[in-house]
Design a binder for these strands. Structure first.
Lengths: 336, 336
DNA sequence: ATGATATTTGACACCGGTGTCATAATGTCA
DNA sequence: TGACATTATGACACCGGTGTCAAATATCAT
């Protein structure tokens, strides 16, 4: 299998390299006859341009990097799947790069990534999308990036998020309307901006309905199943026990459900449990979890799509969007 | 921020490009003094070689591709995490490429991937690692690849798998020793070689203990939660109902557990349920699933590590390994 | 000191494309 | 038909490295 390069094509077609390059890139100023001829040779020799050479000449790699550090596997796969969809639409590829937010090496680590892969852009998922330090660094490197599910203010970069506050508000209201007054809340990871947003949605709903906020009903989680299990213990040990628990994501809610069931509590008869995200686990367990569907794939898809726009035309207006979250009721919540 | 290239380094250090290149690649035949001098300039100018230029010159990208099409999110993330570990150890990056096994475009799709990204190697995960068609194609493209969890015979390529048959045998035996005789089995996806292996482990255990194999106790699944739900219905509708169910993975087992619970059956008192893989969900639900721990990360890590070895030295002996699977007992199985 | 050999170094082509600019071919209008 | 604008084409440098090979220098034995 001999290698077919732009040179061989040019020679075979009897034109210059440059003309072949023009045809390749659909540039104007090629006569129809010549274009036709070259295209035929492409077919005949089964020519595929070398992306690396092209990358060198144009200083582009057609690769987008995805940064993440998230305890939820399903969140990651959803992010990836949205990102891939957008990438493939525009013939980009996706390189994944998990790393840790904490630790002084973050900047170094990302810098390493940038120099070793020459990415054309970066998608930041929480908690990176909320890291001011990282964002400041990226600005100095002038590499385009897009933030997913970030609540921090930065008008100069692409951002797509969903309305966490609104979602949490609706879910809390749902519980209140079912007659619950003692609603425990499990917070997410403090590094994620969604954590505060969801918490404030919860508080606002209580406020609106004239229910006193009680701080002893709030447990500190970090989105991991394990932290949910710890919080579950705290909450179920309370006396009197709250009649409902709202966990900031489905994994933690699943942990509450597990402990409740272990303790012979009936869900939702004895206690209602709700989560957030609509992760697969929410419907894989019994009873199914009432939760808030967050359009993770869609957020990421849009973010990456816009990122690619920005890469191909830096003058594109910076896209900032907030998508709606939606209440999904299942069997884990019921009237008091 | 001015760009620092090999030329500027050379000029600044007062040596030729080539000498800089030698230092860069730790090549011999550079006098200690010169090497020292160049290294100092590296630091001073904060020089980072351009991987794309290097890739063009050496026809290498330092990127490994990972092909998958698997309904289990947790399986995918485990695969990725093992692959990433190996990649980062050797300064490679990982590009992920989900695609569908079925459909005539597979070869075309992969071909496209290879020409648009110039990968240095490919990791195949099930069901791709079992696809003879794909493997034949890859051989014609002469790109190095490694197979993960594949049972098909191919001495010429790297393969790391775990002992599915043995694992299924042990799990079945565990159920038998608990006194179960009517043990239903839910098969996995027919495109995965593990499916037959697990099934045959199940049959062999029955055989060894003199229990008749009953085909009506076998349901056809495909590893997805959904298929598990369908199979669960079939099995729980049987009369008499079997006293134990062994699903070929944990997702399907979780579906059985959900339906059983919905039907007010007590697990494990009324029916024992077991899965395979030791996916996170196995311990996220109540009762926890008895299952077989499959070292997915470790398999992939080894496969990628060997792949990289092979890339850097094609004469490396082809690595083929079978790792052990391990029985994990939890609350979902009990004596009859 | 001399020649023989080993080590260090650099000039230059090359990887496979793209960008710039000059030149050739064609079209337009008075 | 000539003057000029427009379109088509190619020569050549360039992106930032690596490979080849010959020249320069150092090392060693005699």
């Amino acid at each position: 299998m001999k290698k077919v390069t732009i040179n061989s094509v040019a020679e075979y077609a009897g034109v210059s390299k440059k003309t072949v390059s023009r045809v390749l890139n659909n540039e104007p100023n090629v006569s129809p006859a010549t274009r036709e001829k070259v295209l035929k040779v492409f077919k005949e020799l089964d020519y595929k341009p070398n992306p690396i050479a092209r990358g060198l000449a144009r200083n582009k790699s057609f690769i987008i990097g995805c940064l993440y550090d998230n305890p939820s596997k399903s969140y990651i796969t959803r992010v990836q799947s949205g990102a891939l969809e957008a990438c493939h639409k525009f013939n980009y590829n996706l390189l994944i790069h998990p790393c840790e937010l904490r630790g002084t090496e973050l900047i170094e680590n990302v810098g390493q990534l940038l120099t070793t892969s020459r990415l054309d852009g970066l998608v930041l998922t929480p908690p990176f999308s909320d890291s001011q330090e990282l964002i400041d660094y990226l600005k100095t490197q002038d590499i385009p990036y897009a933030r997913v599910a970030s609540a921090i203010q930065d008008d100069s970069s692409i951002s797509v998020r969903s309305n966490d506050e609104q979602g949490a508000f609706e879910l809390t209201e749902h519980l209140i309307l079912l007659g619950h007054k003692d609603i425990a809340f499990i917070k997410g990871h403090p590094d994620h901006s969604a954590t505060e947003k969801r918490f404030s949605g919860y508080r606002n709903a209580l406020l609106k309905h004239g229910i006193d906020f009680k701080s002893h009903l709030v447990a500190e989680g970090n989105f991991s199943y394990h932290s949910g299990a710890d919080s579950a213990k705290e909450i179920l040990d309370l006396d009197p026990m709250p009649t409902a628990v709202f966990a900031s994501n489905d994994y933690m809610a699943a942990a509450v459900l597990k402990l409740a069931t272990q303790r012979q509590l009936k869900v939702p008869e004895d206690i209602s449990i709700a989560g957030f995200d609509n992760a697969p686990i929410a419907r894989h367990i019994w009873p199914g979890l009432t939760t808030i569907a967050q359009p993770v794939e869609e957020m990421t898809r849009q973010a990456v799509e816009q990122l690619i726009m920005q890469i191909s035309d830096p003058s594109t207006e910076v896209y900032q969007k907030v998508l709606e979250a939606k209440l999904i009721t299942r069997e884990s919540t019921a009237a008091r």
